[in-house]
Simulated scan of single mutants.
Amino acid sequence: MITVRNARAEDVPTLVEIGVRAWEQAVVGVADLQLRRGYARNTFQQFLVRQWLRVTVAELDSALFGWASREALDDEITDLWVDPQRQRMGLGSALLAAMEAEIAAAGFEAARLQTHARNLAAVGFFRKHGYAVSWLSIDYSERLDRDVESVGLRRQLIADEPIGYGPGGL
């Protein structure tokens, strides 16, 4: 059974390892894993030690296998990482639903996120959950130490209300 809950400080070491494993899978063919792995681990460690209060985790049978975050507590999902050996088991979907519920509860009408354009598994996952590509760009990635093609995705969470008078608008 999948359980979604807020992270705890003692979860940080496990969350770092999940993040690194999922990151390695996501950047195959985009980054030199041997060269960038230490940097990625350090980045996850620093973020999670400082921001674990803004992290939501997914457990399967009481073991941690995924996490997500909204760093600025706005409409952007900045992190969603699921252990590669536990993908396609509903953990990512549970985390995404939790992030979307937080975003809607905070008063935002849509959720947004970004990933690198070659991360076809992530793009497919988000499109399957109703996200549409809203922008493409090429930006320098400090984590990868190179220019990376990025894709931004967006999903409307709250239906637009018709403008006009009476039921159904004008």
Rank of each mutant, 00 (worst) to 15 (best):
G166A: 15
R118S: 04
A98V: 05
S62R: 11
V55C: 05
E142K: 13
K128G: 10
M89Q: 15
E142G: 12
E10H: 04
A26I: 03
V55L: 02
H116A: 05
R8V: 04
L153A: 12
G38A: 15
D32V: 08
L91H: 05
E76A: 11
V12W: 02
L73Y: 06
S137W: 04
I77K: 06
R54I: 01
L95W: 01
L60Q: 07
S137F: 08
E24W: 00
R143I: 10
R86V: 01
Q114G: 04
V123C: 09
D139L: 12
W135C: 03
Y39F: 12
H116G: 00
V151T: 15
L48N: 04
F47S: 09
F65L: 14
A117S: 12
D79A: 11
I2L: 07
S150T: 15
A117T: 05
V82F: 07
G169S: 06
I138V: 15
R88W: 01
D74H: 06
L91C: 10
E17A: 14
R70E: 10
E161T: 15
M1H: 02
A63Q: 15
V151I: 15
A22W: 02
D79V: 00
P84N: 07
R118V: 01
A97Y: 06
G107N: 09
W81Y: 12
A72I: 00
L48E: 07
V123I: 14
A97E: 12
W81C: 06
D11H: 12
V123E: 10
R86C: 08
A106D: 14
E142N: 14
P167Y: 11
L136A: 01
